[in-house]
């Protein structure tokens, strides 16, 4: 696709989703960051482990699905 083909779509998108201008967080994030840093690390939920295991088994059984999965990730 040529750059000039994209131009109308770019302009159209910018009207629907205006570019983000110069911006900053609405509050000082340092105190909360410090709290998170000192707090316990969040454990990985058991469901995520099950999901990872199922995905791995599925990919081992159906390796042809790897490109499809990679495309959608």
């Amino acid at each position: 696709m040529k750059e000039h083909d994209e131009k109308p779509l770019r302009d159209f998108l910018k009207q629907a989703l205006p570019p983000i201008g110069e911006t900053a967080p609405r509050r000082d994030l340092w105190p909360e960051l410090l709290r998170r840093l000192e707090g316990p690390r969040a454990a990985v939920p058991w469901f995520d482990w099950v999901l990872a295991a199922v995905t791995l088994i599925w990919l081992l059984l159906f390796p042809e699905a790897i490109p499809v999965l990679a495309y959608h990730l």
Binding site: K14, Q15, L17, P18, P19, I20, G21, T23
Partner: peptide
């Protein structure tokens, strides 16, 4: 309704 650049 995100803050937009002035020209947008």
């Amino acid at each position: 309704t995100m803050p937009a650049a002035p020209e947008a």
